[in-house]
Amino acid sequence: MPSICSSLTKFMGYVLSVNIGNMLFNVWTKVAPVLIVSFLAFHLVLPDQAYMIVLFLISLLLGYFVLYGFNLIVWLSAFWFHQTWSFMTIKNAVILLVSGATIPLWFMPAPLEKVFSYLPFKDVYFTPLSIFLGQVPADDIMLTYLTQIGGIAALHISLGSCGARRRRSLSFKEVSESANVQQTYPA
């Protein structure tokens, strides 16, 4: 169908803009209330210097794109499997554990910490969080950014190579749907 063909050229951009829209909505409805409550109830501690917050926000933005890379890989698996709920769930679970979102990597046993520090998962949550907590020395900040950018590049290259093969037969609807239907099934 021609409409799908024309969407193909801009389809990555379409999924991204849907995702950014959802993200901004979540910032407003979920992040902002939690931040306000945290300030009032838990005396959330901010970094001493204001520029640390800027450094944190840059890393957070990069972290968003690393996570987006992981998400795209799972969403694109819809070409093969048609249903992505299971893979999304597995991906979320793995990222939650391996990225240091539930427990900081410092708490992990030393061998695990070493393995995870080489994987791009940590760039999603752990890297921005360590900058926020002042655990990254000023000299290393550029290096952590570069690591994050490297993670984004690696994910998108692997994505491009597997995506290109299926591009002829892809169904636009499936992917845009799988990008939207993430949490409608609380098993």
């Binding site: 249903q83 299971s86 893979f87 597995i90 679970a93 539930t102 427990i103 046993p109």
Partner: peptide, 28 residues
């Protein structure tokens, strides 16, 4: 949808294991 149905069990198991592993690592 055999593939998806069977994977559901695995996905749920892995997801719930994460909370258990978190608990385990905390207790370490």
């Amino acid at each position: 949808y055999k593939m998806d149905t069977l994977l559901t069990s695995a996905a749920v198991l892995i997801r719930e294991c994460v909370t258990v592993v978190t608990l385990y690592l905390m207790l370490q």
